[in-house]
Design a protein around this nucleic acid. Structure first.
Length: 525
RNA sequence: CGGGCCGUAGCGCAGCUUGGUAGCGCGUCUGCCUUGGGCGCAGAAGGUCGCGAGUUCAAAUCUCGCCGGCCCGACCA
């Protein structure tokens, strides 16, 4: 790997310095370049925190809208609980605290004062809080302390609440979107009268995440329970959706937890059931975060920049006008305006690029790096002939395609009416193609692995990916595998998600003990 | 939190070894010219050299501390 001191281009390299590092050269660098060039986020002055810029936030808003509709459709309502949590709340459930106590931001004072030399302000030592507050790393404790007030009878159940908020986890090692000290997420917290209901809720929301990942993000995922070692602290069982990034590493894109009666016991939340007996309530929680934006980038984007699935694109079609003279400008802009109105009538989000002082070519590159799915070019010759040029952000490539062939494949010359009427179907097709491309990539780099030799070869020599292996090892065995191969058990996939022959029983690749089903092993983010 | 590297104009970097006027490319602004894949020419603006101490007549440059970033490790419900 190139040392950081090495300039990315020779001095005087000019425009070359504006280029995105190709994935093959340095995948981590490419990821950061895409974020910077597409203007999704910046590092902030505070360690590990990010500024989410409008282009990045627009993606989050689209994700929120799609997810929120699914939460509402499954009976949930939104609420808001405070960002500050009394430290004493954390001692109620030791198991839960262990999980994140080492990464909590703590508020100890409530006032600043001017420094003696007027050079600034400092914490006023007189303003110490009687009880320190932590900034929420997750909200189980504050929410369950409220639920205790709300729940008396089985008639008060279920409680199905979600909140869209920021949380803080003082991470030692951060990466934009993937792991930041502060991030945005949603956390659903539900309370139920029976174990059956709470387990169903856990599985239902996992399936909501799967549906969202596949159909909105165009990102295939593997669903299943986590191993005991990877479980959420305080959960009886945790489930995850796992996606494969383009460097073949796994990324946990969402989790759903069955919490049993653990939190109800910690906060003493009991209810009277229909038989008049007191019982602790059953709970579930589930969440996805702005990490999904990182997943989106690493699933679809390419060496030209961001690639957005049409369903998450803030601008789905950008129209670039081309003209020389004032007379041409009038004609062309009028045609652009009509085209955009027609697209909007199809419920599409279209934008006309009216920026002055930029050549059309410069605009093409700009919208490509930002990932806009479709571009329409309209010039005087097009107005004359009633046609326009429709260009896709990406096409499926075939072996032997060179740069020129790909560029040609992306372009279509259509009449204005035809282009407008076909656009919804084209966007739909692009959405499907992204999913199919990601699925094909994952399949190509997934295989069953039945011996340690094969395992070592797969990860050390063949570039790795998803290894479907039988496993019956202990928690210590898992740690040994993690140290030796830098891999971990991502989850224990439900049936019919793996490569051929991945369902059914076998023998553990480490211990040789019988194993009922295969686990998903991979390097991970 | 440990090891390595880095922080100089919006972006990418040179200058630091050997202390002495703040530089380059891209971008930005103005004008002209252009516009179907990153136009061209001319002129101009833009920097507390990450922050703070120290050494020195003099610090971007040397020393120390802190803050932030990248990579590797530990950690990561």
């Amino acid at each position: 790997m190139k040392p950081e001191t090495q300039p990315r281009v020779p001095p005087g390299g000019g425009a070359v310095s504006q280029k995105i590092t190709p994935r093959a050269a340095d995948y981590a660098r490419w990821y950061l370049d895409v974020i910077q060039h597409a203007q999704l986020a910046d590092h902030s002055a505070v360690r590990g925190c990010m500024v989410i810029r409008p282009n990045g936030y627009a993606i989050w808003e689209k994700m929120q809208r799609a997810l929120d509709a699914r939460f509402k459709a499954t009976g949930h309502r939104n609420a808001y609980f405070p960002v500050f949590i009394p430290v004493s709340f954390l001692s109620k459930e030791a198991q839960h605290v262990e999980g994140f106590a080492k990464e909590c931001a703590v508020v100890t004072h409530h006032r600043l004062r001017a420094k003696g030399d007027k050079s600034g302000v400092e914490v006023d030592p007189e303003s110490k809080l009687e009880e320190p507050l932590i900034v929420r790393p997750t909200s189980e404790t504050i929410i369950w302390s409220a639920y205790k007030q709300w729940i008396q009878s089985y008639r008060d159940l279920p409680i199905l609440i979600n909140q869209w908020v920021n949380v803080v986890r003082w991470e030692m090692r951060t990466r934009l979107f993937l792991r930041t000290a502060e991030f945005l997420w949603q956390e659903g917290h539900t309370a139920h009268a029976t174990e059956k209901e709470a387990v169903e809720e856990t599985r239902r929301m996992l399936d909501v995440y799967r549906d969202f990942s596949e159909n909105v993000m165009a990102m295939p995922v593997i669903c299943g329970p986590k191993t005991p070692g990877e479980r959420f602290a305080g959960a009886v069982e945790s489930f995850s959706i796992e996606a494969m990034m383009q460097d073949r590493r796994a990324l946990q894109a969402g989790t759903s937890h069955y919490l049993g009666q653990n939190f109800a016991k910690a906060f003493d939340v009991q209810f009277l059931n229909a038989k008049g007996e007191r019982e602790h309530v059953y709970a579930a929680s589930w969440g996805v975060s702005t990490r999904l934006i990182g997943a989106l980038i690493m699933t679809h984007s390419d060496d030209l920049g961001l690639v957005l699935p049409p369903r998450l694109a803030d601008i789905q079609v950008v129209v670039v006008p081309i003209f020389k003279t004032e007379a041409e400008k009038t004609l062309v802009l009028e045609a652009c305006e009509r085209t955009i109105r027609a697209l909007e009538a199809h419920n599409l989000e279209a934008h006309c690029d009216l920026r002055e002082g930029m050549t059309p070519g410069a605009k093409y590159y700009d919208w490509e790096v930002k990932g806009v799915p479709l571009r329409i070019e309209i010039g005087p010759r097009d107005v004359e002939s009633g046609k326009l040029v429709l260009v896709r952000r990406f096409v499926l490539e075939e072996p032997g395609d060179d740069e020129k062939a790909i560029r040609a494949k992306k372009k279509q010359f259509l009449s204005r009416d035809e282009a407008v009427s076909k656009t919804p179907a084209i966007l739909d097709q692009m959405q499907q193609q992204l999913y199919q491309r990601a699925l094909a990539f994952r399949s190509k780099h997934s295989r069953t692995v039945d011996s340690l030799e094969e395992y070592e070869r797969f990860f050390k020599k063949e570039g790795g990916g998803f290894a479907w292996t039988h496993w019956a090892g202990s928690r210590e065995d898992e740690e040994m595998m993690a140290k030796k191969y830098q891999t971990s058990i991502r989850n224990v996939p439900f049936e019919r998600q793996g490569p051929p022959g991945s369902d059914g029983a076998g023998k553990c690749i480490l211990t040789g003990k019988p194993s009922a089903r295969r686990v998903l092993m991979s390097e991970a983010y």
